[in-house]
Design a protein around this nucleic acid. Structure first.
Lengths: 340, 340
DNA sequence: CTGAAAGCGCTAACAG
DNA sequence: CTGTTAGCGCTTTCAG
């Protein structure tokens, strides 16, 4: 038998106080049409007097949506949570849900145990849908959720033929455009600092870099590529390695803003002038803007639109369970700020 | 009448398949004692076969806890969410809950509408308790939750006589100790960059600064104090102002790590050597450590312990609804890294 | 327009 | 040890 938290009035008590039936109270709190204005008012007075708040468990048991969606951040290395991109996405998604009754719940999924717990939570019916970000290629979570029939939208994808609805930026195109810009500016010794290559987003940005060089007939090779993990520290390490291998490097494409910042610091410490001696292009510029670094050219991702689009797709799937997944790829924008 | 998401088996179907009663299945999934081993196995097989997952709404309606707690971040200015301290706290709380069945839900509460929505969510019975961080002095949320009988624990407090359970660091003592250290090192022209003074934590750190100077009989005044908002940008602005007012400043206590970083940058740009000419002390060192700045002396907050303690207090209040609130104030630690 | 009643899936007490 | 039963609070027909 269920026991109630004391002092939590029920719909039935409201009905009694207002002198109406339970159904009527239900109609009032759900803004259903077809209730006489005077009755509605009486009910509302009773609700206010008792400080009544609907029991959400009962409501969703009775078939109503949970009015909540989860944004799961699946990242073993939790340090990355502090990175501006994550915060920006959370903010963008929050904004997109601001005018709805849907509560956003951000959850961390770091370990297998947490993954398990989260799946039970989500499948248990406490959320109507799930947004996922920072998915690695081997993450089974999206499938677990989608297979359970839960509306699921990914930020980014795990591979070229993702079988779950996702929103992604045109990473290949963005990287290609950036490198084309460097080539156009006369640079020829162009290196790149990639993200973790078990993430598709990192593979795409690397591919864009390679394609641009190939198209221009400029040679490249593994020695011009250094792998990082999106963090500033890894950017420093990678930049140092590139400098060792190619002292004559004259441009660097970093797959993240933080890594660009790291590269910048190492180049300066090595006495290189940026962008005169070496041009640096990163993705986004949260960090650099925050630190008031001199404005660098960047590949800007449409974060606002990513958030809005993810929410739109999720709400649509919640309305009408789609049979097919949908894929949206948003264009990036090269923001040129230095001509050197 | 409730409609089910298709393909979601119920406990009843499991019972039917296993050839037992519903009660028995319930016992098995709740690991209750008193079930014959063979029966248990049969039930588990049925569960696996059907891919059964308990409906959490039904479970909590039947009186079981929701097995979820919310960590609400009440901050109008969402940029701050990206700050390392927030991420660290989220991580610490997550760690403290890692071995439990309790799901952590991080929520943003930025506007009044979001506050309202969150209160309904929490009071609706979807969480067993609430952790709050980044509360400003005039935030009514803690009272709204506590009045509703929801176990609530604050990180920090809104004033000297907070009427809700909280965990705080000894901010006054930490600031006092830091300034005493500076005085001991021979500094006399000591300025401070405070946090937003509508937050008690900022007031305490300012008070500690003032107390230390008074005790030492060193004069001070409003012109040595500049208010920031914990962000790096505000730290820059504040430092510039202090330099203008007191070119001879020889030490600065910044109420946050980010502001210390900002102050550092401005001092260097002004040609000051740190710490030889001017000593800088901040609280924590997430940012500085991340950026591999030269090691500065810092006032370290016990983030891990803060998270652990908050979780412990919350779980205790969930077990046995306390009549009284409890207050825990954790000691900070001065980490001395430069002798200059 | 409104009241009554069935049912959502689960737990816990009570019989056996 | 296990089946049965009575709710938990709400939504939603279905009558009136």
């Amino acid at each position: 038998m269920g026991k109630r938290r004391p002092g939590t009035p029920t719909l039935e008590e409201v009905a009694a106080l207002a002198g109406v039936g339970r159904g009527t109270v239900s109609r009032v709190i759900n803004n259903a049409a077809g209730v006489k204005e005077s009755t509605r008012r009486a009910v509302q007075r009773a609700i206010a007097e008792l400080g009544y708040v609907p029991n959400l468990a009962a409501r969703s048991l009775a078939g109503r949506p949970a009015d909540a969606v989860a944004l799961a951040i699946t990242e073993k290395d939790w340090r990355k949570f502090g990175e501006p991109f994550f915060a920006e996405v959370v903010r963008a998604v929050g904004d997109a849900l601001a005018d709805t009754a849907v509560q956003l719940l951000v959850t961390l999924v770091r370990t297998d145990a947490e993954r398990q717990r989260f799946v039970e939570y989500a499948r248990g019916g406490r959320v109507d849908g799930v947004l996922l970000m920072s998915v690695h290629a081997d993450d089974p979570l999206p499938d677990m959720l989608a297979d359970a029939g839960l509306p699921t939208v990914l930020l980014g994808r795990r591979s070229g033929d993702e079988r779950v609805t996702y929103v992604d930026a045109d990473n290949t195109g963005g990287a290609r455009e950036a490198v084309a810009h460097l080539l156009h500016g006369g640079r020829r010794a162009i290196a790149t600092i990639t993200g973790p290559l078990d993430m598709y987003v990192a593979q795409c940005r690397l591919r864009g870099y390679q394609e641009a060089l190939e198209r221009a007939g400029v040679g490249t090779g593994a020695s011009w590529v250094a792998e990082g993990d999106f963090t500033e520290t890894s950017g420093r390490r990678a930049m140092a390695e590139i400098l060792r291998r190619h002292p004559a490097v004259d441009a660097v494409l970093a797959a993240s803003d933080a890594m660009a910042a790291g590269a910048l610091a190492v180049l300066r410490a090595a006495g290189r002038r940026v962008p005169e001696d070496v041009a640096v292009i990163g993705f986004d510029d949260f960090l650099l803007a925050q630190h008031a670094e001199p404005p660098l050219t960047t590949v800007r991702q449409p974060v606002e639109e990513i958030g809005r689009t993810m929410v739109r797709l999720l709400l649509e799937e919640m309305e009408q369970p789609e049979v097919a997944w949908r894929h949206v790829i948003l264009r990036t924008r090269l923001v040129v700020r230095d001509s050197a």
